[in-house]
């Protein structure tokens, strides 16, 4: 087995999706809890602190995933001559990229909907 921190360790392949899952749980859980505890007024439509918070969190995660994508992509370029390593790093980069796009896509409705109705 390779060292855990090596970008060619296959354990990193699902990393992006694990981050995505945690983000998704936090998004849904955070929204639900916030709506139970301190629901913003319905009149404010989407212009609430809650929408802003969810959006900021999403942005942070997207930046993290983009950085990871970049890192794994560079690693896959470095391993051009080693197909096994290249495969792992390429797939991990792809997973991170997809996770980042998924975050953006799923978070789109935050821009247009009141949070707690």
């Amino acid at each position: 087995m390779r060292h855990l921190r090596s970008p060619y360790n296959p354990i990193h392949i699902p990393l992006g999706f694990i981050i995505w899952s945690l983000w998704f749980v936090a998004l849904y859980g955070g929204l639900s809890v916030a709506c139970e505890v301190a629901a913003p007024p319905a009149e404010a439509a989407q212009w609430t602190w809650l929408n802003a918070l969810l959006l900021a969190g999403t942005l942070a995660i997207v930046v993290l995933l983009a950085a990871l994508t970049h890192g794994f992509w560079r690693a896959s370029q470095r391993a051009r001559q080693r197909p096994k390593e290249r495969f792992v790093a390429w797939t991990a980069a792809g997973v991170n990229a997809i996770a980042a796009l998924a975050c953006v896509f799923i978070a789109l409705p935050i821009l247009s909907m009141p949070p707690c109705l």
Partner: peptide, 14 residues
């Protein structure tokens, strides 16, 4: 998604 989501807004108890 862009066309579909607004359609549901009318059923919200705003």
């Amino acid at each position: 998604l862009i066309f579909g989501i607004p359609a549901g807004q009318h059923m919200l108890v705003l």
